[in-house]
Design a binder for these strands. Sequence first.
DNA 1: CATATAACTAACCGGATAGTGAATAGCGCG
DNA 2: CGCGCTATTCACTATCCGGTTAGTTATATG
Lengths: 239, 239
Amino acid sequence: MKTQASATGTPGAAKAKRPPAADTRARAASVPAARRVRDADATRARILEAAKKEFAKLGLGGARVDVIAMRAKANKRMIYHYFKDKDDLFRAVLEEVYADIRTMEAKLDLDALEPEAALHAFLAFTWTYYLKHPEFLALVNSANLHKGRHLLRSERFRELHIGFVPLLDRVLKRGAAQGVFREGIDPVHLNITIAAVGYYYLTNRYTGSLMYGRDLVDPKALEERLAFNMDSISRIVRL
Amino acid sequence: MKTQASATGTPGAAKAKRPPAADTRARAASVPAARRVRDADATRARILEAAKKEFAKLGLGGARVDVIAMRAKANKRMIYHYFKDKDDLFRAVLEEVYADIRTMEAKLDLDALEPEAALHAFLAFTWTYYLKHPEFLALVNSANLHKGRHLLRSERFRELHIGFVPLLDRVLKRGAAQGVFREGIDPVHLNITIAAVGYYYLTNRYTGSLMYGRDLVDPKALEERLAFNMDSISRIVRL
DNA sequence: CATATAACTAACCGGATAGTGAATAGCGCG
DNA sequence: CGCGCTATTCACTATCCGGTTAGTTATATG
């Protein structure tokens, strides 16, 4: 804990907010979304981005809204202008990151791939996403630490996951029909396992590296892990 | 966040600290560890227990040392008597819970079981331990959120895990020699996968239940998950 | 039984912390 | 071009919080 906010009481940010002030106004009329002195969307986005980083770094309880305001180069008051309170900001961040992963995932177009290739692609995507977005893992952990109460009444969260299970189910059904996968695999359990073998390895990389006495995030180790997981999932689904 | 500590400034606990005061002293001399008015070990243990619950509930950043003192029925000053600071207390809690799981695990005596039975027993133990000790999962997550820095210089933590990998390796080697497991399985990766398929399911039960629209901790669902995991691990190791 | 030691307590501190009230000032629209 | 809306700022508060100061008292030991 100790001191991590600035020593001065107020955030003190947003000082050098608008370096070119007078002449920017001229082209503001012509250019659609040119740099405006006031830009609600941009400010809101900066707050969300800063909040994401801060919540991911210290958890909901450890994050400080003064620090978030500072990192967003926004006045703290703006946070309470756009969001009800700290918990509401956390909810917004969670919705944002889930929307991101689900959007990227949809681009895989698993229905267009052969069953085995689809499973391969899905596992690889999940692994790579977790690896490149450690904040996602931390935020999901934090959401669950708080028993998912921030997402309980989130319509957006629920909507994001409609069609998520059916998609994998179609892959499994096609595989079974082609005789390459066994019958009756529960897509939910398979999905959970596909996520688990990557997620656990990556969130627990620190205690893991200490426990096993070897660096789990060394490039070679990461490659090995993906290969092990690919093989594991293949073995789970095949006849 | 809001208010969760008592409204009064000071913890206010430790009021009804010693109901039987006068007569307890008499038998203190004869009985080895009889109920004493002052008991360093007991106080330290109560602090650790309270800290475990509080850290597991709110994370390192969200936990309040005033609350820990209150729940431990101890004066806050005692926490700083036994531990350097909040981080040191967190480290002590982590060492404690890891010692617990590794001690229980050692009792399985996997070397005395047939390879397949040993793997079965190990997976079932891990699953059941996670299920009965949700604090363990939360604490490990918190430790990793903080990049494992609390355990980095912990000799005790390192010692707890010597012999952990070799144990599973012996099971795998015996299985391979008997021709029931395939050759060359990395015990570290298998171990991680065995932990992962239970851990991920249980730590992410809240977001998971919301995402899949079904209660993941319903008794029937838990049974199904264990069966799915048993089957998965068998498929991963067999020829 | 005297006493040194260590367990234990009350009260306190200064900076941090989530959240607000009220005024200012760009920007879009008529 | 002026006016209403709202993005933005500044100043402020009440409480919280990790950690400490300055003791008091039970108990093991000789």
